[in-house]
Amino acid sequence: METKEWVKTASVDKFPANAGACVLVNGEQIAVFNFAEENRWYATQNQCPHKGEMAISRGLTGDSNGTPKVACPFHKKSFSLEDGTCLTDEDYELKTYPVKIEDGFVYIEIE
C-alpha cells in the first residue's frame, strides 16, 4: 500500500519570491516555486526529463496563457507547474507534488 506523508522542508523566507529553489526531501531533489503575489506554491521534480540535469529549480517562472510554468535553464523546455506537462510540444513530463504552508514552513507531500 502506498503511504504518503507531508515533509517539512524550510521556512518560507528561505524561498525566493517569483522564482524557484531546490529542497532535499528524503533523498529526493524537489524544485519549489513561489508565485508571491497570490501566495501560490508549486513543487516538481528538480531533474529536467530532457537531458537529466538537476536544474528545474533554477529556471525562470511565469505563465503561458494563464498556466503557471517554469522553463528549464538548459534548453528552455517549458513545463506546466499545475500538472507537469511539457508546454513546448514534447513528450516530457515533470512529476508534481502537493505543497502546503503551515506555521511559516513549506511542506511537501511525498510517497
Partner: peptide, 18 residues
C-alpha cells in the same frame, strides 16, 4: 514587477524577464 504591473499582463516568462 513594476513594469509588469504597469504595462504587462500575467506572470511574465523566460522571454520578457531577461
Amino acid at each position: 514587477p513594476e513594469l509588469l504591473k504597469k504595462y504587462g499582463t500575467g506572470y511574465g516568462c523566460e522571454v520578457c524577464k531577461p
